[in-house]
Amino acid sequence: MKVKFYLEKNQKPTTEHGMKVVYGTAKRGGYRFRWYLILAIILSPIFLIIYTYAKQYLFITAPGVITTGPVVITASQNGIVKKIAVDENEFVLEDQLLIQIKAPVLEEEVTFVKEELLRLNEAKEGRDEEDLSPYYAAITAAKHNLRKVTKIKLNYDQYAQEGKVSQVDYAAIIGIYNTSQSSLTNAYIALNQAKIAQKQRELAGGIAQVTRTLNQSLTTKMNQLEALAIKAPYMGLVIDINALEGQRVSIGDPLVTISPDVAPFVISYLEPKYIDKAKLGTLVSVVLPSGQKVKARVAQSIGLTSKLPAQLAKPFEGAKALLKVKITFLGGLLESEWVEGMPVEIYF
């Protein structure tokens, strides 16, 4: 037999010894919520670690950056920035002037070389050329002598046919005629040799060598002066200007970064073991920092690399081989949705 006891408190819970007692509303729900909240805060790092660890097995992801392949133009000579002809985010045309640099030392060198060349040319013009008149006189005398001997030979030819002259005398005349011809030939040869020697002195002499060296130096320095006018290599957008007017720059210092006028694309860095996912035309999802997902596809597998961009590199992370993959957007991006070098995550 089951016996149940009923206390007065069970029947009248709001009455105590005949007096009414007012109780507050139950707060068990609030305590329970706070307990769940504390528990969630405590366990959230564990869940985050578990998700991060499991993510690499559940999804194939790779970091990447949105880019258009910008080019950093550097200084080709030491100098001072004279003029900055463009502003950041300005659209420029091919060969448009971006920055003008002046190099006082180089300009002085060009002036000095020009003055030296002018003095050498004046000295060359004032120098007396070799006198060739003796050679011409020798040719004239040889021609005159040959004409006289030719007339005598013609007479002896007639006498020899008539038998009026001996063979010995006729042979002597033939010898004299041949000697006259040789003298004229030798005179011409001597004149040509004198002209050749004179030309060689002009081309290979001391003044000629110095002039050639100075002309070569002037050409090089003029090209260096032309290179001080920094121009756009192609039509595009000025992303960044790394110099100020009046700033002194050295060879190799970055001056301006310009992006070509092309649609943005993504360069991703995928682990080589997932190379089969980087086939041409493979569809992927690009997750922007805002959480927006954009459809894209693999356009090109560029090759292996061991260097990540600065915005993707993690501290204390050693270099490792990664597959560099170019990805293009299927529908494109609005200008407000991306900036050059923005990090993204790609899901293959």
Rank of each mutant, 00 (worst) to 15 (best):
V284Y: 10
E94P: 00
V92P: 02
I49C: 07
K320N: 11
D128Q: 08
G332S: 04
K320D: 11
A137M: 14
E116P: 00
K164C: 03
D128G: 01
Q100H: 03
A321M: 09
K9A: 10
A123H: 02
S217F: 06
V21S: 03
Y6W: 09
S76R: 09
L283P: 02
D128F: 04
Q200K: 13
L93K: 12
A190T: 06
L48M: 13
D95A: 12
A263W: 01
T52W: 08
Q181M: 13
A278E: 08
I176E: 15
A160H: 11
K314W: 04
F47G: 13
V3H: 14
G246S: 05
G205E: 06
I275L: 10
N242Y: 13
K151D: 11
R32L: 14
Y135S: 05
L304T: 09
Y274A: 12
K124T: 15
V110D: 00
P309C: 11
P260F: 04
T213E: 13
D261K: 14
K20A: 06
S183E: 14
I50N: 02
D253L: 04
G303E: 07
A299H: 13
E108T: 08
G69F: 03
G205L: 04
V65G: 05
K320W: 00
E16Q: 12
T220P: 00
G252A: 08
P134I: 07
S133N: 11
I174D: 11
